[in-house]
């Protein structure tokens, strides 16, 4: 028992620390509640101990226990459903919604993080079992750093160039650069948009990026993230100042406009650069043969 105790402690500890580090409450405002944190930390702890116990079960060797552990790992699939359900429910009461693509992305990340925790615990446990406990101090940080690096996906700044764009009106049509956004009927709203509105142009760097930005889910994610930080002047029953992103049908770039509570164009550009590329919206034209051929 004594020898396994160290394996268990080291592995569970490493896994749990990894979960704590991966659990960031950032601008996406999720999870921002103490209960949400607790739920994920508790599940992270369970995941870490699963990984730890697996090492001991194999070392014993007790293969029945290993089989049961595999069954237990299936439970983590539920996390995705849980997250998806919560976020979809919350979506109904949001003025600016995240969109299902973003929710699916977040849910997947939460599920995947638990597998990373299991993996960290498993490897750390194995290292301690094979050599001695001080090696855990080397293995655990490497694994933690690796999983942080692995799980940080691409952001919009990687796939597109973002620049400030001019907002103008052609009659009643709101234009950002040369793209028509919508028809604004009331003169007072037009003035407000001209005075306080901010516009940017998002130019994709290649065909994959263009397809990514095409997807409404990705656009909703951009709109949500910007509005979540800078605020938006849309209100219930007053949809006239709704931020929107439209593409130039011929040139393929996206324009985005928002009437924000905090009108600061530079920060807006920085925020858009940091919006994650949604997994399910990611374009992959260039990985197909004909896609590459058609691109040039």
């Amino acid at each position: 028992m004594e020898e396994y105790l160290i394996v268990l402690l080291a592995a569970t500890g490493a896994g749990f620390i990894n979960r704590v580090i991966l659990l960031r409450s950032d601008y996406r405002q999720y999870p921002s509640y103490p209960h949400g944190h607790l739920t994920h930390l508790a599940l992270g702890f369970i995941a870490a101990s699963l990984g730890a116990v697996a090492v001991v079960a194999i070392a014993e060797p007790d293969y029945v226990a290993v089989t049961f552990l595999v069954l237990a790992a299936q439970q983590f699939r539920e996390i995705r459903n849980m997250e998806r359900e919560t976020l979809s429910k919350l979506e109904e009461t949001k003025i600016i919604s995240r969109g299902t693509d973003y929710i699916e992305g977040i849910a997947r990340v939460f599920e995947a993080r638990n597998y990373l925790v299991i993996f960290t615990a498993l490897i750390t446990g194995t290292v301690v079992q094979i050599s001695s406990w001080p090696y855990a101090l080397i293995a655990a940080p490497i694994l933690i750093i690796a999983s942080n690096k692995l799980m940080s996906g691409k952001v919009i700044g990687d796939i597109a160039e973002i620049k400030e764009a001019k907002i103008s009106f052609e009659g009643a049509m709101l234009k950002v650069e040369d793209v028509f956004i919508m028809n604004v009927g009331l003169p007072q709203n037009r003035e407000k948009i001209i005075e306080e509105g901010m516009g940017v142009i998002i130019k994709p760097k290649d065909d994959n990026a263009r397809l990514t930005l095409d997807s409404p889910g990705q656009r909703m994610a951009i709109i949500h993230d910007v509005a979540a930080i800078l605020g938006s002047k849309v209100d219930i029953n007053e949809p006239e100042l709704t931020p929107s992103a439209r593409k130039h049908v011929d040139k393929g770039y996206l324009v985005f406009y928002l009437v924000a509570n905090e009108p600061d164009i530079n920060y807006m550009i920085e925020i858009i650069k940091r919006v994650p590329v949604i997994e399910s919206s990611k374009g992959a034209a260039l990985s197909s043969y004909f896609g590459r051929k058609a691109a040039d």
Partner: peptide, 10 residues
Amino acid sequence: AKVTGGIVHD
């Protein structure tokens, strides 16, 4: 527009 929650277009 305010009553119906709609948008005015010109």
